[in-house]
Amino acid sequence: MRNITIDKKFFKEIIEKKKLFYKQIEKEEFDTAISNLNKETKKCQAAVKQNCDTDEILCNQYVIINCFWGLLRNYCKFWRFLGDNEFQASWNLLQDCFGNIRGIDMASNGKELFDSDNFYKHLLNIEKLYPYKMFISTELIVKKIICSICEKSPYDNDCNHIKGELYAGKFCINIVKDAELIGSSFVENPSNKRCVILINYDKSKPRYSSFGKVWQFSKITPLHEYIIKPKKVLLKQKEFLEYAKALNVDKEQVKNQRFVPVTFYEVTKSTSII
């Protein structure tokens, strides 16, 4: 089911709560925010359980509201990983946030209520700071697949469910029961961006890694856009060698220089997204 409209009766509570969560996130009180968001999720899940047999429309609304709490929770976890220089893990959380937005997008009035356009643009901009440009496309031959709602094959004429849509509070997914991997290839526009090539880096020296821009971004305030500018800096010979090692830069030519000019990108805080 699509075109779900969140009832006005929910607005006041959602708006009050989201303001509170935005404040906690800006102040980087991620643990507090996550614990409060978990409580909201529990409430939504209980409401879904209570209404799934009697009121599908209400039930689907609770699922979508819960997608918004999920988005904020994943955004908090994303920042916690950034703080620990766990950039690879942070990328996966970023993708989870996009998944939550897909759920929110099912509500016709979700854009205003859940600021989903702002979050979407923000997350896309963050993605650009990562070194992942090509993705792995696994090529599978699927021999058996079932629909999570009716447990029949989605190709059975009795199954009318479409993957990704909501049915009485449950997202329809296709479960692969039997498949064979026949190959893999690199693609620029994958349907799932989690399939990346892992990049090794030294977590203790993130500045001189492929994740340097992400590391710089992690120093600005959450829920803010960033400005990125090239900046020329002079690195001491020792610093340059570290930099060259991490980024595979030729170090032979500058052997005898005390300072080496290098162009870095500087990431600084810009406007608030909310």
Partner: peptide, 24 residues
């Protein structure tokens, strides 16, 4: 089939599916 007055049919029984992580 759910959003138009037209009828879509598979030419043969779909017994094998190809799953790619792209829009090719």
């Amino acid at each position: 089939n759910q959003n138009s007055e037209y009828k879509a049919e598979f030419v043969s029984e779909p017994t094998k599916l190809l799953s790619l992580n792209s829009f090719d």
